[in-house]
Computed example of a mutant assay.
Amino acid sequence: MTPVPEHLREATRARTQETEKRARTALAELVKTGAPVSFTAVARQAGVSTDFLYRCLELRTQIERHRAKSGTAPAAPADRSDDSSTSAAVRALSARLTRQQEAHNEAVARLRRALEVAQGENLDLRRRLARYEAG
């Protein structure tokens, strides 16, 4: 595996910092206006994904703290290490797995039908052979 060039790493860092800045600004605006603070609200306001907010520990902590202050905390524990129910990657992989399972089930059904046909032909040939040998 070839190493990632420095200019690409720097571009990634700059993009991440800009995204964090937008999220912090959105959080501050929500708090200032008294709007309910949630991961979804911050993500919409900042134009970022909820996955990004959950992965960024500092932003996650701030959002959870403000959400708890406003009393909009969810019923689920807030200290989970990941929130797979909102993870776009998990949803995409689940959808892909479902499609693969459906394709597998169709292939198994086709193979079973082909096996039934082959077994029928085999039985027919054995019967013909038995009549030939008997006669």
Rank of each mutant, 00 (worst) to 15 (best):
R131M: 14
Y132K: 14
V31W: 03
R91F: 08
H66K: 09
L57G: 13
Q100E: 14
T33Q: 14
R112T: 02
M1S: 15
R24P: 06
E18S: 09
D79I: 05
D82I: 13
E106I: 01
R113W: 04
T61P: 12
E18D: 09
R55G: 06
R127V: 02
T19C: 07
A78Q: 14
Q119K: 09
R15L: 08
K69R: 15
T25K: 11
R96H: 04
Q100D: 11
L57R: 15
A89L: 07
T12S: 14
E29W: 01
D124V: 05
R127W: 09
R113M: 07
S85R: 15
L59P: 00
I63V: 03
E6S: 12
T2P: 07
L111N: 08
N105A: 15
R55K: 13
T16E: 08
A103W: 02
S85Q: 13
A75N: 11
E116F: 06
P3V: 08
R126S: 05
A35F: 02
N105G: 04
E20Q: 09
E102C: 04
D79A: 07
Q45I: 05
R13V: 02
V117H: 08
V117W: 05
Q62E: 13
A92H: 08
C56V: 14
V4N: 05
A11P: 01
T86E: 04
C56E: 15
T98H: 11
R9H: 09
A95N: 05
S94F: 04
A11C: 00
L8D: 07
L53F: 03
K69A: 07
G71T: 02
S49Y: 01
Q100L: 10
A43S: 05
S70Q: 14
R131N: 12
C56A: 15
R65N: 07
L59W: 03
L53A: 01
R22C: 00
I63W: 00
R127D: 12
K69V: 07
R99F: 07
R112Y: 04
E6K: 10
S38E: 03
R13E: 03
E20M: 08
T61N: 14
V117P: 08
R15T: 06
R128E: 14
E58A: 12
Q100N: 11
G120V: 04
T12Q: 12
S81C: 13
T72I: 09
R24T: 03
P74G: 00
R113E: 13
G135W: 07
Q101R: 09
L8M: 13
A89H: 11
Y132E: 13
P5K: 03
S38A: 06
L115I: 04
R13Q: 08
P36R: 01
G135R: 06
L8Y: 06
T72N: 11
A78C: 08
D83F: 12
